[in-house]
C-alpha cells in the first residue's frame, strides 16, 4: 500500500518527445485509469512507473521513496500485461509462485500464498495446467494471481482486457475492480476503452499526444470536460462539436438561438452530448436524419444539421420504430446546463 506521485514526468525517445510532463498525485488505495487513443503515451507512462522505461525528466515517487533509478523488482509493484506474459513452460502454480521463489521464500509458504490467491480467483482446479491449456479468461486470472501473491503496494495493468471477448471483458472488469477494492492496493490501469475508464476509475487521466488533457473522476470528466479532446473521447456516442457563435448573451448556431449563456461574444466550439438532445416541435435544432441505429434501450440517430455538412448524432431513449425514418427532419432542444463551450483556438473549456 502506497501513494504514487508523478512530478513533471517526461519521456523522449531520441529527439522525439512522447510525454510532455505529467503531474499527478495518486492516493493510497486509489484506482487510477489512464485512458487515451493508441500512441498517446499511456503505456509508456505506465512502463516508466514500472521501471521498464527510463524517465527522461521529472520524478516518480512510490510511497515515500524516489523510484526513478530503482530496478523494477525493487519498486514493490506488480504488473499485468496485455498478452498476460505468462511463463509458457511453467504450470499455473509455478507461474504464480515464481516471484516468491526468487525472493527465497520456503516452499510451504509459497504453496500457502499461491493456494490462497488461487482460491480468491477460482483457479484451484487449474494449478497444474500449463498456460497453453487455459482459455483467455483463465490466463488473465493467472496473470492477476501472479500479481497478487507478491502483495505489492501498487498494481499496474497494461490493457489487460483487450484480448478478451466483449462479454468476458465486462465480467473481468468487475472482478478486477472488486479485487482491487478488497485488497485495497493502489492501482494504475491503462486502457483505450473509455467504458472501462468510466466504470472502473476512481479518477482517470485522459491522455492525448503525451499530455494529460484532464485528471478527474469519471463524472467530472463527463460533466465538465476541460478540453475538446476529453469531451469527445469520453462518452459514447461521442459528443457533437459544432462551430457556433455567442451574441447578445446566447449561443447561436447559424444565427438561431440555442441556449442562453453569460460568456463573452465571439466564435466558439459548441459541444452537445447526443444523449442530452430531446425532441421538441419548437426546438431550435433542426436535424436531418440519415441513419437510425435502434439499440433497444435507446435509438441513435445519425444525420446532419439543416443547411450544414457537419455530422450530428442524437441519442433518444427507447424505440422509435415508426416515427423517425431516414431523411426525416427532426426538431431538438438542449438544456442550457448541458451545453459545453470551448475556445476554438486552444480547445479549452470556457
Amino acid at each position: 500500500m502506497a501513494t504514487v506521485t508523478l512530478k513533471n514526468v517526461k519521456k523522449s525517445f531520441g529527439p522525439t518527445d512522447v510525454i510532455h510532463g505529467i503531474d499527478v498525485e495518486i492516493a493510497d488505495g486509489e484506482f487510477i485509469v489512464i485512458v487515451g487513443p493508441s500512441g498517446c503515451g499511456k503505456s509508456t507512462l505506465l512502463r516508466m512507473v514500472a521501471g521498464l522505461e527510463t524517465v527522461t525528466a521529472g520524478d516518480i515517487h512510490i510511497g515515500d521513496d524516489r523510484a526513478n533509478d530503482k530496478e523494477p523488482m525493487d519498486r514493490d509493484i506488480a504488473m499485468v500485461f496485455q498478452n498476460y506474459a505468462l511463463y509458457p513452460h511453467m504450470s499455473v502454480a509455478q507461474n504464480m509462485g515464481y516471484g516468491l521463489k526468487i525472493a527465497g521464500l520456503p516452499k510451504d509458504q509459497i504453496d500457502a500464498k499461491v493456494g490462497e490467491a488461487a482460491r480468491l480467483l477460482q483457479l484451484e482446479a487449474l494449478l497444474d495446467r500449463k498456460p497453453r491449456q487455459l482459455s483467455g479468461g483463465q490466463r488473465q486470472r493467472v496473470a492477476m494471481g501472479r500479481a497478487i501473491v507478491r502483495e505489492p503496494s501498487v498494481f499496474l495493468f497494461d490493457e489487460p482486457l483487450s484480448n478478451l471477448d466483449a462479454k468476458l471483458r465486462v465480467q473481468m472488469r468487475l472482478e478486477i475492480k472488486e479485487l482491487q477494492s478488497k485488497l485495497g492496493v493502489t492501482a494504475l490501469y491503462v486502457t483505450h476503452d473509455q467504458v472501462e475508464a468510466m466504470t472502473m476509475a476512481d479518477r482517470m487521466i485522459v491522455m492525448n499526444g503525451g499530455v494529460a488533457e484532464q485528471i478527474g473522476t469519471p463524472l467530472e470528466v463527463y460533466e465538465s470536460p476541460r478540453t475538446l479532446f476529453a469531451a469527445q473521447f469520453i462518452g459514447s456516442p461521442a459528443m457533437n462539436v459544432l462551430d457556433a457563435e455567442i451574441k447578445d448573451g446566447s449561443v447561436r448556431l447559424g444565427g438561431v438561438k440555442i441556449a442562453p449563456t453569460d460568456a463573452a461574444d465571439g466564435k466558439v466550439k459548441l459541444g452537445i452530448r447526443p444523449e442530452h438532445l430531446k425532441p421538441d416541435p419548437s426546438g431550435p435544432i433542426d436535424m436531418e436524419v440519415q441513419l437510425s441505429e435502434p439499440l433497444g434501450a435507446n435509438t441513435l440517430l445519425h444525420g446532419r444539421l439543416r443547411g450544414s455538412e457537419e455530422p450530428f448524432t442524437a441519442s433518444l431513449p427507447g424505440v422509435h420504430r415508426t416515427s423517425i425514418g431516414s431523411h426525416q427532419m427532426l426538431k431538438l432542444k438542449v438544456a442550457s446546463e448541458d451545453i459545453h463551450l470551448f475556445d476554438p483556438q486552444t480547445g479549452t473549456r470556457y
Partner: peptide, 14 residues
C-alpha cells in the same frame, strides 16, 4: 516475448 522477460524482471529475477 519481451513481456515475459519484463514480467520476470518485475518478479525479481536478475
Amino acid at each position: 516475448p519481451k513481456s515475459v522477460i519484463e514480467a520476470a524482471a518485475i518478479d525479481g529475477a536478475r
